[in-house]
Design a protein around this nucleic acid. Structure first.
Length: 609
DNA sequence: TTAGGGTTAG
């Protein structure tokens, strides 16, 4: 590829400057030298007449090495040119800079920078843009900004390079500020600029403004701009807007499909993500790593193990893709297939902190707390540094296994051992840990000691523990805190109302019911589902829609009867008090989770028969 | 001749 480029450039230069020296049949060293001379001479400040034969050789050698991507030889030739105050053409320097980027050669790149600005030489804007890009690629944004500030002339590429750099590093304010400066400077943004700056939108209003500008200048049809728009609307959970932009497209490409599929997958709408995936396949596109990662995420959110297994077959051809492997690992963990997850994890050649965290959390969420903690210890010796989320997984494992001392040890040492300051979620895990263990005084003490403000989730965790351990005073306190932070939490209203009812505080009950009515707060029915033979069966409370409804309720009632024989007493604390006696029990017995589990048990039994 | 879009763990 590079060779073709080299030859093609050689021909053009020859024709322009020395037609007699060009000969298709003689592509030898001599002619190559002539061509380099021709190209370089256009930018030699000293002019061709002042160039001696030796100097010609130097520049020609330099050019040759740049196009051959021979970095050591090119740099040596550059030193010789510097010594003799010689320069090559901008395009050749551009090739050398690309070579430095490819080799991660920061020192050499800086040396080229120094050379093209030495002895009063004034590089073209194009060449400075290439240097800007080099600093950006090396993550040396301060150097890029300093160079940008020195530029006497900045074009749309110069501005876009800087805007893209700030957007990528999530310096959103700076990226938007530079867009404004660019407009004030009279430089018009193009599709490159918009596709880069969109992700820096700090608010929905910002996004609407940018979108309007894009439509006004007629750039909405550009695929890059369009996929960036779909992506940012999805990130702001504006999925209808994202879908509208997508549907307006006459032609699409894979990245645009991936943007819209990813948007739905990330917003917990796995169904729509999978529908779009089917549409994509029907349109003749082949899934790549990004598509499959989003499809796996959709399977994960819907707990579709069988579909996930089918996706796994396609993942095999991208078996070195870390992100995709992590998504696959997570799918198996969340679908409860720890054996498959562990097998993937063991076989992964490259693992990062996300792989380890996913597996630790997978063990913890599936009830294997000890395995989670053992894996965490292995991780520490593997050289991968745990992060905020890893520690959440560790504390989660401790809380679900009642390992109070282990949890306290990890919590107290996380700052010192791993440099991670406990955040709200870590405190939440500790409140859960102490609360489950019945240590409610310690739990509330910890909440009061939190460095960050406790949120509704923290108070709800405490409330849950109070309910289990029947600490009604503290429960009332926690419930009020939850409702002050989340006034639409129907479950907490009901629980608080029941606490009042149990202590005959009927005026408080009435006042709370009034608040619920006035606020239009209703308990949304939860939904549970189970996958049987590649089919998903979904249930809500007291569901009668399933074709096998009679058999399901017959079996469920038998299970409840057997449980009662063993001493089970339904806890009706969470059920609305105006539902009475048997009805109250039924709203617990016919809970959607129970219906789904009983149907699963029936299906297993049928399979064995 | 330089700049741009999509994917993973709580």
């Amino acid at each position: 590829m590079q060779f073709h480029k080299y030859i093609s450039r050689f021909k053009c230069s020859s024709i322009n400057l020395d037609a007699t020296s060009f000969s298709v049949s003689l592509l030898g060293i001599f002619l190559q030298r002539q061509s380099f001379y021709s190209a370089a001479a256009t930018e030699w400040r000293t002019g061709p007449s002042a160039i001696s034969g030796n100097h010609l050789d130097l520049v020609n050698d330099f050019t040759k090495y740049c196009y051959q991507r021979d970095l050591p030889k090119a740099m040596k030739a550059l030193d010789s040119m510097q010594k003799h105050k010689l320069w090559a053409d901008s395009i050749t320097y551009g090739e050398l800079i690309k070579c430095c980027i490819a080799h991660g050669a920061i020192k050499h790149g800086k040396r080229v920078h120094q050379h093209v600005f030495s002895n009063g030489y004034e590089p073209k804007t194009f060449l400075v843009n290439t240097l800007l890009n080099m600093y950006v690629k090396f993550n040396l944004l301060d150097d890029a900004q300093a160079l940008f500030d020195q530029m006497p002339e900045r074009n749309v590429v110069s501005w876009t390079t800087m805007i893209a750099a700030y957007s990528n590093l999530e310096h959103n304010y700076k990226a938007l500020e530079m867009l404004i400066m660019m407009l004030r400077d009279g430089v018009r943004p193009n599709m490159y600029t918009y596709s880069s700056v969109l992700r820096a939108c700090e608010g929905f209003f910002n996004l609407k403004q940018l979108h309007c500008s894009i439509i006004k200048v007629g750039l909405e049809s550009d695929v890059f701009v369009r996929s960036a728009l779909i992506d940012i609307y999805s990130k702001w959970a504006e999925l209808n807007a994202a879908l509208n932009i997508f549907d307006e497209m006459v032609t699409s490409d894979l990245v645009v499909w991936n943007s819209v599929i990813g948007g739905f997958a990330q917003n917990s709408d796995g169904d729509e993500a999978l529908n779009l995936f089917i549409r994509m396949k029907r349109s003749g596109f082949w899934a790549d790593q990004s598509t499959l990662t989003s499809v796996l995420r959709a399977c994960t959110s819907l707990a579709l193990l069988e579909l996930g297994r089918q996706v796994h077959v396609h993942v095999i051809k991208f078996n070195r893709d870390l992100v995709l492997n992590n998504a696959l690992l997570d799918m198996y963990c969340k679908c409860g297939s720890l054996k498959d997850a562990n097998s993937i994890f063991t076989r992964m050649v490259v693992k990062d902190v996300i792989s380890w965290s996913t597996m630790i959390i997978g063990f913890a969420q599936n009830g294997y707390s000890r395995k989670a903690l053992t894996l965490f210890e292995t991780m520490k010796t593997s050289g991968i540094k745990p992060n905020y989320i890893t520690l959440l997984g560790v504390l989660f494992a401790c809380s679900h296994a009642g390992l109070v001392q282990d949890g306290q040890y990890y919590f107290e040492s996380m700052k010192m051992l791993f440099g991670i300051e406990p955040g709200r979620e870590h405190y939440g895990c500790m409140v859960d840990l102490l609360g489950r263990a019945g240590k409610l005084e310690e739990a509330i003490k910890l909440v009061h000691e939190m460095k960050c403000e406790p949120d509704a989730v923290t108070w709800r965790t405490l409330l849950g523990a109070c309910r289990v351990h029947r600490k009604m005073d503290l429960a009332e306190y926690a419930a009020k805190k939850v409702l002050s932070l989340d006034p639409h939490d129907a479950g907490t209203y009901i629980l608080l109302s029941n606490i009042y009812a149990n202590t005959q505080r009927w005026e408080d009950v009435e006042s709370l019911r009034r608040s619920m009515r006035d606020g239009g707060i209703k308990k949304e029915p939860g939904c549970s589902w189970i996958e049987i033979n590649k089919q998903v069966h979904a249930f809500i409370l007291g569901d009668k829609a399933h074709p096998q409804v009679n058999a399901i309720y017959r079996d469920l009632n038998q299970v409840i009867w057997r449980l009662k024989e063993e001493g089970y007493v339904p806890d009706t604390n969470f059920v609305l008090q105006d539902v009475e006696g048997e009805q109250m029990e039924n709203s617990l017995a016919h809970h959607s989770e129970k219906l789904a589990i009983v149907f699963g048990m029936m299906s297993l039994r049928n399979r064995r028969q």
